[in-house]
């Protein structure tokens, strides 16, 4: 039987990249020589010893097995996110995982894929996007919509530029508002405004939606409008998953443990969940 190990795997911070004024990406390389295999959509518990442990989605490609990348927003109330932001390249962190179910990308083969990410939701789908690009011929049409509050709030801007120019993925970005003096000449408007011109074969499409909760009902409505079924709408939910292994009880919604039964759920499943 599978057993819980509460002791993290040591990992050295190879690279730290400032994505925005509040977000940094960390490349964590494992020092124990073990291969780290995971499914896109899974998460890890990352430790800063003395400060604690917190859950972060794995933002790097599953093809890489000696290191992972996480992207962390610093919050005033977030103990571990603040401690991570204080670390420097060459410092150590700890990792437990991979945890959670991830997206069933095998099941999606042959289908059209629509990925919708809002703000800091992008790190949760980056592994999925990279995986599909690596296995491009196994999937149908591939559309990616990204919305951020302002141009300066966008993460992975270099990569977004590459994806926008790539024939492999139909990548579209929008910002809610253009900041003062910004050179942004792209689309301005809520993420839902990207939907109207899209040509989507609803029944043939699986949608993956990750972003702030406030975005969900509007994006769900757009997807339903295009004929995407509730059981083909996938979400990655967020809760404070303290243990990551279905024991500590902090992440429950109804009878589901987000950390163990999720974090990936379909909209059809979410409608069955009792409680908040």
């Amino acid at each position: 039987m599978e057993q819980v190990d509460y002791i993290p795997q040591p990992a050295i911070i190879d690279e730290i990249r400032a994505e925005t004024p509040t977000e940094k990406s960390f490349t964590l390389r494992f020092t124990d020589g073990k291969e780290f295999n995971f499914r896109p959509g899974q998460f890890v518990e990352v430790s800063v010893l003395g400060a604690g442990e917190a859950p972060f989605c794995i933002a790097s490609s599953p093809a890489q097995t000696d290191a992972i990348q996480i992207t962390v927003r610093r919050y005033p109330q977030g103990t571990v996110s603040a401690a991570l932001h204080e670390l420097e390249e060459g410092d150590y962190a700890g990792v437990r995982g991979p945890l959670g179910n991830g997206f069933p990308l095998e099941e999606f083969k042959g289908r059209d894929i629509l990925v919708v990410a809002g703000g800091i939701g992008l790190p949760a789908v980056r592994a999925t996007i990279l995986y599909i690009l690596d296995h491009r011929s196994e999937y149908g049409n591939f559309i990616f919509l990204y919305g951020a509050r302002t141009p300066a709030d966008r993460v992975y801007t270099d990569e977004l530029e590459i994806w926008e120019g790539s024939p492999q993925i139909e990548c579209m970005q929008t910002v809610d508002v253009k900041d003062e003096g910004s050179s942004w000449d792209g689309h301005v408007g809520l993420i839902t405004t990207l939907f109207e011109p899209l040509e989507i074969d609803g029944p043939q499409t699986t949608a993956i939606i990750v972003g702030p909760a406030v975005m969900y009902p509007f994006v769900v409505a757009e997807c339903r409008q295009k004929g995407v079924a509730d059981e083909n709408l996938y979400f990655s939910l967020e809760r404070h998953m303290k243990c990551g292994v279905g024991k500590c009880g902090h992440c429950t919604i109804g009878d589901k443990y987000v950390c163990l039964d999720g974090p990936v759920f379909t909209y059809a499943q979410m409608q069955q969940m009792q409680g908040e």
Binding site: Y75, Q77, G78, R239
Partner: peptide, 12 residues
């Protein structure tokens, strides 16, 4: 504070 998240959001 049982369900409090880093953002300050409290689901319950």
């Amino acid at each position: 504070g049982f369900t409090r998240e880093a953002t300050g959001h409290i689901p319950r």
